[in-house]
Design a protein around this nucleic acid. Structure first.
Lengths: 107, 107
DNA sequence: ATAATAGGCAACCAAATGGTTGCATGTCAA
DNA sequence: TTGACATGCAACCATTTGGTTGCCTATTAT
């Protein structure tokens, strides 16, 4: 699986995006902190975090018996640069072409 | 399911992203055109296109017995604006904080 | 030392996903 | 008008996914 594919797959789940949001609000949280207030078991959160780590979206550091989770914003940035920008460049062109076609169908 | 969630889910599959790429290269293709060269059946492509259409990533127009597919770049743009930008703003801050922590663990 | 705390591992489960095949329908061309 | 072409629909299938429970290990605090 390509690196970018892993990132897209990791971002596809709302729970995982919300975990990234929480780390964005406060970086360096432990597993237990990240579990607080969530409607799923610790093990479910562990799995989500593992997927995010595999996709390189977070980095972890063991500190005694705690595991601290840190956001890595680089892959998200790359999705923006390498993938989304490509489609934005042609945005206006695509919309105007669609409009032309929509009008054309009544011929 | 929220609109943005649907977009993220739709983008999670490499085949679907490749379909968007093909439409980006040449907009307004028919189903059969989009099937050419792909290693899956027409029905599989139909399903992918339906998911992309539900997520509002493409718009279709029936033209006789053909169905033309057009890219809608707006949702992709919104992912960039509403989601990715948020993380980019704190990019440098997050990286420097991680660095600090990495150094701190040897204390 | 030992109890409490933080996390890890593995088996299991239901539902969603990505794909198939077979057949039906609608439209165009000879 | 009839055959070929473009697409649609539905049932079915294997695998992946997101979650659970139960138990184990490692670290800290009393």
């Amino acid at each position: 699986m390509s690196a970018m594919d892993e990132v897209f797959k990791a971002l596809a789940d709302a729970s995982r995006r919300s975990l990234l949001d929480r780390l964005h609000a406060e970086n360096g949280q432990t597993l237990n902190e990240l579990c607080e207030g969530l409607e799923m078991t610790r093990q479910a959160v562990t799995k989500h975090l593992a997927i995010l780590e595999d996709a390189n979206l977070i980095t972890t550091i063991r500190h005694g018996r705690e595991k601290l989770h840190y956001l890595n914003p680089l892959p998200i940035h790359q999705i923006g640069e390498r993938w989304i920008r490509k489609f934005e460049r042609s945005k206006l062109a695509a919309l105007s072409e669609l409009k032309r076609q929509l009008e054309k169908r009544d011929e």
